[in-house]
Nucleic acid binder design. Structure first.
Lengths: 190, 190
DNA sequence: GTCTATACGATGATAGAC
DNA sequence: GTCTATCATCGTATAGAC
């Protein structure tokens, strides 16, 4: 069942490599070296370099969408849902470190029709996030504010985590989360 | 005086191209086409592709450092200085759109010793920003919080601007700034 | 599935005539 | 300073033996 160990290792190293150097700067030659194979042997496990990028991007997307679905289906009030979403982003950024960069930056190198599909998913995610923010405002739980500005400020502000967190193991995810919420969430809370 | 018109145009188009496609994906062939020259002619104006990246990165760095210096020398209280710094970032992001991406993302492709120098400058900037945040906390103007978390949240959260702003000319810089401050600054204000 | 060998294109950059 | 022509290098990917 599942994928072979070799295949698994290739995907993991590819994600790490793409994160470290960026998709374009990451060469198949270096990937092969890290995995301990010849370049040509890699191609027994997948069809092209971009296929690796596709897997990483859409796997990440699925993680965010599943988290969103859970939040939407919860019975919490809107402001609590926003809290949960911020928490979701922090959790993904601290557990699946590699995927975050790629998900936020390297998707640009997807070719059609994958690029279009990816952007569609992202747009959908943003809309659903915005909807929850708007519900929070309507319910009087969040300040009157430009939802788009708030959305992007929140989403983008969490993007430094993946680079910073691994270095500072001293701080726990829990306290990190509460610090971020203090800066970010308290800023939009009435 | 100053640089020749051709040279100027090359720098501008290079900045735009690097922003649109990323440094690695931007080819000298496309740059030449946009400028209206043959590739080889470009090299009469500069020595290498990376030289263009260096100029963009360090020009951007200078803009931030000058802004920081002005803020530091002002007699405003710490929390007002933080306001001014956020305003500085918004102003740079909305006026010098191209430089922001490159300054935030593409510096990775600098080679030594420029990479080291750039990172040194950035570190210096972050330290000075942190110092002001700490002064705000000590003065009781800002909440008790983890300064590093606050710093990166602020810095990173402004990074969506350069991509979003050009599309939405409907909103003025002034009102954009006040919306961002509402989300961000009010979040750290006691 | 892994290897050696190689195809083939795109890239940054240079030489030398005008 | 701009051109035409060309180079060397490195990229992804494939062919075919084992």
């Amino acid at each position: 069942m599942a994928v072979s160990p070799t295949k698994q290792k290739i995907f993991e190293e590819a994600a790490r490599l793409f994160q470290e150097k960026g998709y374009l700067a990451a060469s198949m030659r270096e990937l092969a070296q890290r995995v301990g194979l010849q370049v040509s042997s890699l191609y027994s496990h997948f069809g092209s370099k971009e296929e690796l990028l596709q897997k990483i991007c859409f796997d990440s997307a699925r993680a965010y969408l599943e988290g969103m679905k859970n939040v939407e289906e919860s019975s919490a009030k809107p402001s609590e849902k926003v809290r949960q979403l911020i928490s979701l982003h922090i959790r993904i950024a601290t557990t699946d470190v590699t995927s975050v960069t790629i998900f936020s930056d390297e998707w640009r190198h997807l070719s059609e029709p994958y690029l279009r599909e990816f952007l569609g998913i992202r747009k959908d995610y943003e809309k659903r996030f915005s909807k929850i923010l708007q519900q929070g405002i309507d319910a009087g739980e969040l300040k009157e504010m430009n939802v788009t500005v708030a959305l992007f400020t929140i989403l983008t502000s969490l993007r430094w985590l993946h680079r910073w967190y691994p270095e500072k193991r001293g701080i726990s995810v829990k306290s990190l989360e509460s610090e971020i919420l203090r800066v970010l969430f308290d800023g939009i809370k009435k």
